[in-house]
Every structure is written in C-alpha cells, then in structure tokens.
Amino acid sequence: MSLTAAEALTVTLQARQSIYNAPNRTSEVIDAALSLNRDELEFDKKFQIGTF
C-alpha cells in the first residue's frame, strides 16, 4: 500500500490526536507529541504589501 503525502499527513495527525485522546495521557506526553511533530509538519509564510 502506498500513501500520498496528504494521506501520510492525515495518518500522522490522527496518531497525534489519538495520543491526545488516550485515557492514560499526561500533559507531558501531549506536549512532547505536539512539539515533536509541529516543527516538522506545519509551516507558515507572511506576505507583505506596501509602498516599500
């Protein structure tokens, strides 16, 4: 089975969510899981318009 990038991302995000929802979760586990993937998976860009 092969996954597209979007599907792969969905699987990873779902895994993150399942840890978040786990009954025995601790805040440390959640924080670690979130911070671990956020830098790798999420991006942002700022656009500026003006008279410069």
Binding site: A5, A6, A8, L9, L13, L41, E42, F43, D44, K45, K46, F47, Q48, I49, G50, T51, F52
Partner: peptide, 11 residues
C-alpha cells in the same frame, strides 16, 4: 507596509 497576510499549512 499596508497589510500582512499569514498562511499556515501542513503538507
């Protein structure tokens, strides 16, 4: 600068 738009994406 008149405006700044920020977009966030994953994948």
């Amino acid at each position: 600068k008149q405006a700044v738009t920020t977009i966030h994406w994953a994948g």
